[in-house]
Design a protein around this nucleic acid. Structure first.
Lengths: 239, 239
DNA sequence: GGGATGCATTGATTTACATCAAACCATCTG
DNA sequence: CAGATGGTTTGATGTAAATCAATGCATCCC
């Protein structure tokens, strides 16, 4: 385990109030059970807290910030398999070692559980197991979409799909956020590693979209989507 | 639902004896419960039985043969997200429509459950839910590996990884099958759609591997792996 | 202020793979 | 048997994206 340090609170307080968090399915009366197993950690930007291949000792529940999950090849090539937002659950491995690494993009708060105690919890709270199955199913759908993207979409289609995904991410379905304003805490390098492209191609594609009047690229990590329709045409494989 | 026809038996008989099948976690005394909800279908080669986007009415458990799962873009580009072998579970969608299509590669036998009755089963048999969670976790790991392959590996690395995966597929871990002999029921087109390549590139890569003495390409669907070591070097990103 | 440092952007060139095209070789069918 | 069909292989050419290479532009720190 890398970066197991970081500030630690006595108890995972935030995740009991987050909707969709793992802890939120526990009945209020049983919260004390949770206090025995859950510890909150604050992970600074860039710090890794799950190392690919290391013994899988803990489960995590993200309560704030953004986490990048990735796999790497021996020569350093990296594929980011997903960005985990608050409510997301990490470390659901059947194997006894982690199949992926995890690193904080910005400042991240996670709720940490030991795996063996988690097993006990699962036995006692069937709702929790149902919730995990639901989460895993959703991730599977996302993974299949990403395979289609990585295997068959062009660079422009990938970036368009990514921006559209980011607009809907973390929002209840059927809501379009705040007028296309996106924050995107990750670097161009992270986006490239997520989309199976290079930094240069991501940058060029964003520049091209700006020239087409589809987006505005602001300072820092701000991007504003000006035309969802144009991006949707692109992402679907037309345009 | 496409191709919902096909020969149907009164009851899913094969899946109760298959290790790792969904039915196998049901206690023998409760098999009668299962008989109420499970129906076996035989699906001929090339026939689709799950249509992407159609209402998700059923769950399936593959009991023999090989199924290809795929997603498609409007213009016809296709990505095969996985091949489902016996024991595999299909249709675990949270949404009310299927996120992918499924089609028989060779002759396939599936055990079909209605989703609403499946929900009742889940309530009554906690073991079943545990088994599904395990299955979903394994698929998630496979999906992450595939994302690394699609996003970051070269054509040679992809084909090498595929052949190695196929050698271990369906076997208990730590067993190397029958001397490198592989059957591969799918066409070059299927392999291409699975690896994010074209038919021609798959064919050329296999020819190259033959020329390198790594494999033998037999008639029909037979491929023999002559040097696992060479393939492993390739798949890891060296060579 | 004046380097460093760490992203991001833009341009020139290369290349791995796709595309286009032609055989090849089974199996099937009238 | 001839011809059609569907998958596979091999070759010639094209191109989208990678690579190589500057330059820009913040923030940080001495």
């Amino acid at each position: 385990m890398i970066g197991s340090g970081g500030v630690q609170a006595d108890f995972c307080t935030t995740c009991t109030v987050r909707p969709n968090s793992v802890c939120s399915v526990i009945e209020p009366g049983d919260i004390s059970r949770l206090a025995e197993v859950a510890v909150e950690s604050i992970v600074p930007p860039g710090r890794g807290f799950i190392e690919e291949g290391a013994p899988a000792t803990d489960f995590f529940n993200v309560t704030s910030g953004t986490v990048k999950l990735f796999k790497a090849l021996p020569d350093g090539r990296r594929q980011i398999t997903g960005f985990a937002a608050p409510g997301h659950f990490l470390g659901l491995a059947v194997s006894d070692s982690y199949a992926f690494g995890a690193e904080a993009v910005d400042t991240v708060r996670v709720c940490r559980f030991s795996r063996e105690k988690m097993t006990e919890l699962l036995d006692d709270f069937p709702k929790l197991e149902r919730r995990l199955l639901e989460e895993a199913s959703n991730e599977l759908v996302a993974a299949q979409n990403q395979m289609l993207l990585l295997g068959r979409k062009t660079a422009r289609e990938r970036v368009a799909s990514f921006l559209l995904d980011q607009m809907h991410a973390g929002l209840p379905p059927g809501q379009d956020g705040n007028g296309g304003r996106l924050h995107l805490p990750m670097t161009r390098g992270d986006i490239a590693d997520y989309l199976g492209l290079t930094i240069e191609t991501v940058s060029r594609t964003l520049s091209w979209m700006r020239a087409q009047g589809m987006i505005e690229v602001g300072k820092g990590y701000a991007i504003t989507v000006l035309s969802v329709a144009k991006l949707e045409v692109l992402a679907a494989g037309n345009g």
